[in-house]
Each structure stands twice: as C-alpha cells, then as structure tokens.
C-alpha cells in the first residue's frame, strides 16, 4: 500500500478514536444513533407529508393572542398549560416567556424529566425563534414520535420569540422558568 494511503488510514483511525472519546466525555455530546430531526409520520399528515419541509408541520398552530391568554396559566399549580422553549439554552437565558421550560432538543435529560408533567397537561405550546425556525417542530416531533406524547396536546406558536417580544409581551431573563 502506498505510503500516503497508509498515513491517511492511520490518521483517519486516530481522528475517529479521538472524536468518539471526546464526544463521550463532552457534557453536550451527541447520541450517535439518535435522529434529532424527525420527519412527519405519513399517517399524521394523511400520507401527504413532504418530509423535507419542516415548516409544513402536522401540528395545530396557535397565534399570539391565544398564546398570551394561555401564558396566564403557566404558573398555575394544576399545570394544565405548559410552554416549551425549543431554542438553545443560551438564548433561553437571555430571555424567555415567563413560565416556559427550556427544552432544547439535545438536552435529553431535561426532556425525560418533563415527560410526566407533559402527559398530565391539556395544552403544550412549543416555540422557537419564529420565522424560518424549525426547532419547535423538531421538538414537537420528538415528543410525539419518540416519547409517545399525544399529538393533539401540542400547539406550535409559529410567531415564536420574535413575535412575542415585538408585541411587548412579558419576558423573563435567566435560567429560571
């Protein structure tokens, strides 16, 4: 085998081992087998899922006015209404809907811990930045197709954080909900 190819193979092996080891030790390491960006199940869209365009989602949508009304109940002890912020944790800390949980897709532990609360809720609103942001849809699909949450519970607030803040709705900063 030519010297160059032999070196390339050794380098690839070393890189692979280093990458896997670092990923295992990284606090935000990826699950190598997990599909983080689930597509709509065909039965959820009546067989019309286009698969590639996440913004054409299979969930119910909620507008700003109704989202604001529902947000009034986010601190109610019954926990009937839950808001999930699908943006990255750093964005959440900069500001979020008061009472919303930070549930970025990569944080599997946070999602697992939330599941009992979500199963008892009547309304689960998921939002991200707004505009072309797809994170809320990927999170909603993860909740339904991987965690088995009832799809009818979930509402996508498509206007997201941008519409919320533009409207002058209440904002909370920091890591606490």
């Amino acid at each position: 085998m030519p010297h160059l190819l032999r070196q390339a193979l050794v380098f690839a092996a070393v890189t692979l081992v280093a990458a896997l080891l670092a990923n295992a030790l990284h606090p935000s390491g990826l699950s190598l087998g997990r599909d983080y960006f689930l597509e709509a199940a065909p039965e959820a869209t009546g067989g019309a899922a286009d698969g590639g365009h996440a913004l054409e989602h299979e969930f119910q949508s909620v507008g700003l006015d109704e989202a604001r009304d529902w947000a009034e109940f986010l601190y109610a002890p019954e926990g009937d209404v839950i808001f999930l912020d699908a943006r990255r944790p750093a964005r959440y800390r900069e500001g979020h809907v008061p009472g919303a949980y930070s549930t970025s897709l990569e944080d599997e532990e946070a999602l697992d811990e939330l599941m009992p609360k979500l199963r008892n809720a009547a309304i689960v609103v998921v939002y991200c930045t707004g505009g072309d942001c797809e994170d809320s849809i990927f999170l909603a699909r993860d909740l339904v197709y991987r965690h088995g949450l009832d799809r009818e519970l979930i509402w996508i607030f498509e206007g997201g954080w941008n519409e919320w803040t533009t409207a002058g709705a209440p904002v909370k900063e920091g890591p606490e909900r």
Binding site: T15, L20, L30, L32
Partner: peptide
C-alpha cells in the same frame, strides 16, 4: 447515523 458522526468527527479532523 453518519450525520451525527460527521458532526462529532469533522472538528477533530480539523484539530488533528
């Protein structure tokens, strides 16, 4: 998933 493997591996390809 190769996509996940690429996300993990490419930065180390650059570093090493």
């Amino acid at each position: 998933r190769l996509e996940n493997l690429a996300a993990v591996g490419i930065p180390w390809l650059e570093v090493l």
